[in-house]
Simulated scan of single mutants.
Amino acid sequence: MIDRRCFLGMLLLSGGAVLSSCSNAAGKDSEVIPLFAERKDGDEAASDGAAEKVKVAFAALVSPQESFYKYQNLVNYLEEKIGRSIEVVRRQTYQEVNDLLGAGEVDFGFICSLSYVMGRDEGTLAGIAAPVIGGSSFYRSYLICRTDSGCNMLEDLQGKTFAFTDPLSYTGRLSMLKLLHDQIGADEGFFREVFYTYSHDSSVHAVHLGIVDAASVDGLVYDELAASQSDLVGNVHVIYKGPAAGMPPVVASALADDGLKSSFQNCLLGMVDDERGRIVLEELGYDRFEVPDDTNYEVIREAVAAVGESAVDESGAVRQMRR
C-alpha cells in the first residue's frame, strides 16, 4: 500500500509559494485555495440581490497565483456580457467541484475531462463549451522526469517517487494508470511513494526541484511553462505522451436554469466574434470555444473501463461511470 502523505514542500514560484495538501478520506476538509482576489464590492453585492449572482466554480488546474492571472479577465468579461455578477467559488479538487455541481450549489464549473465524463455520465452536469487551442480540440498527458534520474522509459520508474495532480485528473493521473495497466500490468504500487500536488505546474516544479522523480502532467501546461520558463524544464524531459482526449470543458450543473445555461454558453461561443472577447481568448492561449463533442472523450471512458476503481478518488467511494 502506498503511503499517500501530504505534499508539504513549498514549491517556490515567481512571486510566491504554493502549498498543497493531501486529500482526506472524504475530501471535505481540503483547504480552499485562493484563486481570485476578493472584490471590493463583495459585501454590497451580497446584500443587493445575491439571488442574481451566477456561481462559477474553479478547481486548481494550475496553482493559485497562475490561476488568478489566467482567469480573472475571463470572469470580468463574462460578468459584463451576461449582465450579472459572478461569484467565484474556489475549490482545490475536482471532486469538490463535481459535488457542488451535482447539488446545484454552483451553476457552472471549470473542470478536467475525467471529472466531466464522470459527471455527464451520472447526469449531474452538461458540457457547454470546450476550448480550441492551436487549432486542436484535444490535449494529452506528458510523463516527465528529471534528466539526471536515469529514467528514460516507463520501466525505469519502478520504486521511484511520483507526483499525480488530482485523483480525478485525466492527464494528471488516469492516463498514467492506463499506461501502467497496458504496458506493465501494474497499478500505483509500481511506485515507491505517490504524492498529489493539485496543480500541474506544481507537479512540474516538484520534478524540477527533485522533490519527486517523475510526474504525469497536462501537456498544454507543460508546453506553456517550457515556452515561458525554459529554465524550469531545463533539467526535465518528456519520456511519454499519452493518447489525445477532448479538452477540459466548461460545464453547467444539471440543476442550473436553462435560460442561464444558454446565455452563458452563447457568451463563451461568441467570444471569437467579439473584439474584447478575442483579446481575452488570446490571453488564455485559446483560439475559441466550441460545443464539446462527446466522442472526443471516449478514450477516457475506455481508460476507466481498463483500470476500474483506480480512477476514483482516494476515499474509495466509487463513482460508477454509466453510459
Rank of each mutant, 00 (worst) to 15 (best):
R4Q: 15
S14I: 14
S14K: 06
G16R: 01
L19F: 15
A26E: 14
I33W: 01
I33P: 00
P34E: 15
L35N: 05
E38C: 11
D41G: 07
A46W: 15
E52W: 02
K55H: 08
A60C: 13
K70F: 10
V88L: 03
R90V: 09
R91L: 13
G102Q: 01
G102K: 04
D107K: 01
F110M: 06
S115M: 14
G119L: 02
E122R: 10
E122A: 12
T124V: 14
P131K: 04
P131E: 11
V132A: 12
G134N: 06
F138E: 10
F138T: 09
S141K: 00
C145T: 14
G150Q: 03
C151Q: 03
Q158T: 04
Q158L: 03
F162V: 12
A163K: 00
L168E: 00
L174K: 01
S175F: 10
M176V: 06
K178C: 14
A186D: 02
A186K: 01
E188C: 05
E193Q: 15
E193G: 05
V194C: 11
F195Y: 15
F195K: 10
T197E: 04
H200T: 12
S203H: 09
V204I: 12
V204H: 06
A206P: 00
V207K: 01
H208N: 15
H208C: 13
H208V: 07
L209T: 08
I211V: 10
I211R: 05
I211G: 00
A215P: 00
V221Q: 05
Y222H: 10
E224A: 09
L225V: 08
A226R: 09
S230M: 13
S230K: 03
H237Y: 11
H237F: 08
H237I: 06
H237P: 00
I239H: 11
K241N: 08
A244G: 08
P248E: 06
P248K: 05
A254F: 13
A256F: 13
D257M: 01
L260D: 01
S262F: 13
C267M: 09
L269F: 13
G270R: 02
D273R: 03
D274R: 04
R276T: 15
G277A: 07
E282M: 04
G285L: 04
G285D: 06
E290D: 02
V291Y: 07
D293A: 14
T295V: 14
E298Q: 07
E298D: 06
V299E: 06
I300S: 03
I300N: 05
A303G: 12
E309D: 14
V312M: 14
V312I: 12
D313L: 09
A317Y: 13
R319G: 06
R319K: 04
R323C: 14
